[in-house]
Amino acid sequence: MIKRCALVVTYNRPKLLVRCLDALVNQSLKLDAIIIIDNGSGIETKIKLKETNYIDKNVNDYNDKYESEIDSIRNNINIHYLSFKYNKGPGFAFYRGVQLFESLNYNWLWMMDDDGFPDKGCLFNLDIHSKKADFLNPVVLDEKKTDKLAFGLYDKKKLVEIKTKDDAIKSAENGLIHGVANPFNGTYVSRRLVNEIGFPQHEMYGWGVEVEYENRAKKSGFNVVTVAEAYHFHPESRVRQVSILNGKYRLNLQTNSFKNYIDIRNRNYIWYRYYGLSMNIKYFMAYFYYFVSKNKFRSIVLYIEAAIDGVCAKWNKEKRFDG
C-alpha cells in the first residue's frame, strides 16, 4: 500500500501555517501523514496548532531542548511536529524534514513552505503521474491572480516562457512539462529518489537549496516534471529582477546584503557544480556590468566574495551580513 506524507516548513506564520494544513487534510486524495518543521517560531505557533487540534500536547509542557518532537493524529492523519529552539534557516528545516521522512514508513513526500497551499485536487493530480517521474511539481499560481504563475517557468524544449495557467496547459505534453519546476512549492518526490540523492544541502542555509536539490535529481537521472493541471497557490515572488542587454540576462536583486550574499553564493555554487565555470564567468560579467552602470561598487565587492565562496563551497559566512 502506497503511503503519502506531506512536509511543511514554518517560521512565525501561524495563520498561514494553519491555512496550509487545512488544505492538506482536505485533499481529495488522502494523506497518511504530515510532518511540520517549526524552525524556531515563538510560542504563538504552538498555541495556534493546539487550538486547531494539530498537536495534542499542552504547550506549557513543551520542553526547552534544541529539538523536540510531538506526535498526534488529526482526521486519521499522523502529525509529526518537530520544533527547533533556534532558527537554523529554511535549508536546514527542509533537510531535517526529509531526513525524518526517510526514517519513517512512507513512500512519497510532498514538500512546501507555510505561505503556500495546494488546490484540493493537487495531490491527486500529481499522484496519477507518479509512475512517469520521481520529482513532480504542480504549477505554482499567484494566490491573488490565480490565472498567473507566482514565479514563472521556462519551457526549454519549446523555448517559451510560461507565465499563465493557460501557457502551462499549452506547453504540456500528455499533461507534463518536462525538465522544469518551481521546487519546494508542492514538490512530490519518491522514497527512491531520496534514497538515491540524499537530503537537501542544509549548509546553503536558504535561497537556492531547492534549486540545488532539483539539479541533483536531474544529474542522477531522475525525471523532473511539472504537472500542468496540478495547482499550488503562493504569494507572487518578492525577489526583484532586472533585465540587461536586451533581456539576455535576468539578475536577482535581493532586499539586503544578507539575502544578496546567500543568493549569490548559492547560485555560484550551483552554476559551478552543475553547469561549469563558464556559467560563473558569464554571470559575473553580467552583474559587473550592471553594478558599474549603477555606480554600486560595494555590490561588486560583495558579489566577488560571495561568488568565490560559492565556487569553493565555503559555508556559514552569511551571519556576517545579518543585521
Rank of each mutant, 00 (worst) to 15 (best):
L49Q: 07
K50E: 10
E51L: 06
T52V: 01
T52F: 05
Y54K: 03
Y54S: 01
Y54E: 01
D56N: 07
K57C: 02
N58T: 01
V59Q: 04
N60Q: 14
Y62T: 04
Y62I: 06
Y62K: 05
N63P: 06
N63K: 07
D64C: 11
D64T: 07
D64W: 12
K65P: 03
K65A: 00
K65I: 02
Y66R: 07
E69W: 12
E69Y: 11
I70D: 15
D71S: 14
D71E: 15
D71M: 14
S72M: 15
I73A: 11
I73K: 15
R74V: 14
R74E: 14
R74W: 13
N75Y: 15
N75R: 15
N76T: 12
N76W: 06
N76H: 13
I77R: 13
N78K: 15
I79S: 04
H80Y: 13
S83A: 09
S83C: 00
F84K: 03
F84A: 01
Y86F: 07
N87E: 00
K88F: 02
G89N: 07
G89R: 08
G89Q: 10
P90T: 04
P90K: 08
G91Q: 03
F92W: 06
F94H: 04
F94E: 04
F94G: 06
Y95K: 01
R96G: 04
R96E: 11
R96L: 05
R96H: 08
G97Q: 05
G97P: 07
V98I: 09
V98L: 05
L100I: 09
L100F: 09
F101S: 12
E102R: 09
L104V: 11
L104T: 03
L104Q: 12
N105W: 07
N105V: 05
Y106C: 06
W108L: 05
L109S: 08
L109K: 07
L109I: 08
W110V: 01
W110H: 10
W110C: 05
M112Q: 08
M112D: 04
D113C: 06
D114W: 00
D114C: 04
G116R: 07
G116A: 02
F117K: 06
P118Q: 04
P118A: 02
D119F: 00
D119C: 04
K120R: 15
G121Q: 10
G121L: 10
G121D: 10
C122H: 02
L123G: 04
L123D: 07
L123S: 10
L123Q: 08
L123T: 05
L123A: 05
F124Q: 12
N125V: 06
N125G: 08
L126D: 10
D127Q: 12
I128W: 11
H129S: 13
S130N: 09
S130W: 13
S130M: 08
K131I: 10
K131P: 01
K131C: 02
K132C: 06
K132E: 09
K132A: 09
A133H: 05
D134Y: 03
D134W: 01
F135T: 00
L136R: 03
P138G: 02
P138F: 02
P138L: 06
V139M: 10
V139K: 09
V139D: 09
V139Q: 10
V140L: 13
V140E: 15
V140Q: 13
L141A: 10
D142P: 15
D142G: 12
E143M: 15
E143T: 14
K144S: 14
K144I: 04
K145C: 09
K145Y: 14
T146Y: 08
